[in-house]
Amino acid sequence: MAYDAVDILRFFSPTAPISDSRCPMALKGSEFLPVKNVFAFVKNGFMRHEGLSEMFRGSWKLSESGLKNMALNELSAASGLIDLSGLNSFSRSVRSGVILFSKGSTLAGTADRLRYTLVAAESVYLRHSFEYAGSLISQRISDLVSADPSERKIIKDSIAKSYFLRNEYKENYSSAELTAIRMCTIAVHTALRISLLNTHNFSNRDDFIDALSNPTSH
C-alpha cells in the first residue's frame, strides 16, 4: 500500500504530464538524483565529470508554492484511492489509471512511457478490450478536455498518432512525433484528473462514459 501511495502522490508532480521529463522519486524527496558519470582519457591521465542526466530535464520536485497551489479537491479524491477496500469498480479503474500513469512517468524510454500512458487512459476511458482503443480513446478524451473544436481535433489527432507510435521502439523520434506524444501525455493526465473528481459520482465505467456522451443528462 505504501508503494501505491507514492505512485498516487507522484501523479501530482509538476513534471508528471511532461512526456520528456521523468519523475523517479516521491514529491519532495531529494535523496537520489538521476546523474551520469563521464570518464575521458587525456594525455596526462583521465578526467571525470558528473552531472544531471539530460533525460531528466527540469525539476521533478514539488516546490513549497506548488504545494500551496495544488488542487486540494483532486488530492483529497486521490487520497481516498490509496486503500482498495470499499472502492467501487469505477474508483478502482481510476486508481489503476493514476498508478499506471505515475509509474510510466518514471521510465526513461519514450515508447515505454507512452505505452503506460495509453494503458492508463484505457483503464478509465475504454469500456472493455473489445472496443477499438485508438479511435475511441482519442475521441472521448479530446471531447472531454477541450471545448474548442480546432483544439479538440489537434488533441484527437495527437492521441491517434500516439497509438500508432506506441509499438515503435526507436531511439529518435521526429519533431512532429514528439509533439504528438507530448500533447497526448498532457491530455491523458488532464482526463485522469477529471476522472478523479468523479469517483464519488459514478459506480462503474459504463455510466461514466455514458455521461461523457450525454453530458446534459447528468
Rank of each mutant, 00 (worst) to 15 (best):
I159E: 10
K68S: 14
R92W: 04
S105G: 12
A133R: 01
G51F: 11
D112Y: 02
V38A: 12
R127T: 10
H189N: 05
G29N: 09
K153D: 15
P34M: 01
A78E: 12
S65G: 08
P17S: 08
H189A: 07
F39Q: 10
Q139D: 15
F56C: 10
R113Y: 06
I154Q: 14
F12I: 00
T106C: 13
N201D: 12
F208D: 02
S195E: 00
Y132R: 07
N37C: 13
E177Y: 03
L81N: 08
S162D: 08
E31R: 00
A40N: 13
K161D: 15
C23W: 05
E168L: 09
A160E: 13
E131Q: 13
I194V: 08
F208G: 03
Y169A: 09
S217D: 13
A5L: 11
R57C: 14
M183L: 14
P215V: 00
L27S: 12
N44A: 11
S105R: 05
E168P: 00
S79N: 12
T15H: 10
H189E: 04
K156H: 12
R115L: 13
L196R: 04
H218D: 08
Y3V: 11
V38C: 12
S129L: 06
A180F: 02
M55Q: 08
L27F: 09
A121S: 06
R10Y: 07
E54L: 08
S79C: 12
G80F: 02
L75G: 11
A108F: 09
S162R: 01
A160L: 08
D210N: 14
D4A: 09
T117R: 09
A77F: 00
R57G: 15
N73T: 11
Y125K: 01
L114F: 03
T185A: 08
A16H: 05
G97E: 03
V124G: 03
I82F: 09
M183W: 03
S135D: 15
R95P: 12
S102T: 04
F202E: 03
S85H: 07
P34L: 04
D210S: 13
L212W: 04
L81T: 01
D148G: 04
R205K: 15
R166T: 02
F101T: 03
F202A: 02
R166P: 09
A191C: 01
G104T: 01
S129V: 06
P215G: 07
T179G: 13
L196T: 02
S129P: 15
A26P: 13
R127M: 12
H200I: 06
G104Q: 05
A147V: 06
